[in-house]
Amino acid sequence: MRKLFVAVGGSLLLASPLANADIVGVGASVSYWDSETSGQAMTGNDVTDLENDLNLDSDSNTNATLYFEHPVPLLPNVRLNLTSIDQSGRGELSTGYGPISAGTPVVSDLELQQIDLTLYYEVLDNWVNLDLGLTARDLSSELTIKSVGGLNASKTEVDAVIPMGYAAARFDLPFTGLSVGGELNAIGYGGDSVYDVTAYGQYEISLLQLQLGYRQISVDYEDGDDQLDIDIDGPFVSAGLAF
């Protein structure tokens, strides 16, 4: 499956139009994402509901982005992004999961980390901005479920490096510092799929960029006997600097 992801992703990059920035540009941002998780985790034939059975709540989110754009022809621009999510909960299993029986009170912890390396080209660069490219996403996720006061525990892990098509568009309102935009990383093949969608409004003053928006990550991925089919979404605020 991973070889198929690589093949499809590589084709997307080769198909991207070649363009480049007029000057060197560097930017960085950090954001707070108020995210919620829904969906299911599976191990073997066992299934648990992350929202209704585990009652997962957000403990901490880390989101940071760094990009570098240049005027060198043919070479892509570079963007790095880190997303780290830690959620925990206390609930009761409606069905058995691994060695844990149905009706057992449990505590659980979900850790999900994404490290993205994106190579992209600027297709349009005026009041309408359009970037196209390819993202290599290092996805690591671990769900641990433990019975309360007992010794039984189950661990569900998904670990993969996934190429994804990348597109970003922004529409500037001239002379106002205001703009609206969106970003998409996506891939789907053979029943597995990963989508990461962001929509935002931005205000820019001097070097400072402030964003308010909404982000949704959908992961439906099988790794051996373990599978995650989850959605993580919610509003975010972001502050960054662009040089």
Results as ranks from 00 to 15, higher is better:
residue 69 E to A: 13
residue 116 D to V: 02
residue 119 L to I: 08
residue 128 V to A: 15
residue 158 V to K: 05
residue 48 T to A: 13
residue 94 S to W: 11
residue 98 G to I: 06
residue 117 L to A: 07
residue 121 Y to W: 10
residue 134 L to W: 13
residue 126 N to H: 14
residue 131 D to G: 06
residue 90 R to T: 15
residue 143 L to V: 02
residue 89 G to S: 02
residue 67 Y to Q: 09
residue 76 P to F: 09
residue 66 L to T: 06
residue 137 R to G: 03
residue 145 I to N: 02
residue 51 E to T: 07
residue 49 D to T: 03
residue 91 G to D: 04
residue 126 N to S: 10
residue 103 G to D: 11
residue 135 T to V: 04
residue 90 R to L: 09
residue 41 A to W: 08
residue 141 S to F: 05
residue 40 Q to N: 14
residue 160 A to N: 14
residue 99 P to E: 02
residue 45 N to Y: 12
residue 67 Y to S: 14
residue 78 V to S: 01
residue 154 S to I: 08
residue 90 R to K: 15
residue 35 S to T: 01
residue 73 P to R: 15
residue 47 V to D: 06
residue 70 H to F: 08
residue 154 S to N: 13
residue 44 G to R: 08
residue 151 L to M: 13
residue 72 V to P: 00
residue 73 P to V: 09
residue 154 S to E: 14
residue 42 M to P: 07
residue 96 G to L: 12
residue 60 S to F: 00
residue 160 A to L: 02
residue 106 V to L: 10
residue 58 S to G: 04
residue 137 R to K: 14
residue 47 V to Y: 12
residue 143 L to M: 13
residue 148 V to T: 09
residue 120 Y to K: 11
residue 107 V to A: 09
residue 119 L to H: 08
residue 159 D to E: 13
residue 50 L to E: 03
residue 121 Y to L: 05
residue 101 S to T: 14
residue 146 K to Y: 04
residue 109 D to R: 15
residue 52 N to E: 15
residue 99 P to R: 01
residue 80 L to I: 02
residue 131 D to M: 07
residue 63 N to E: 05
residue 43 T to E: 09
residue 106 V to E: 07
residue 104 T to M: 13
residue 118 T to R: 13
residue 63 N to W: 10
residue 106 V to I: 15
residue 76 P to R: 15
residue 84 S to V: 01
residue 96 G to S: 13
residue 82 L to C: 05
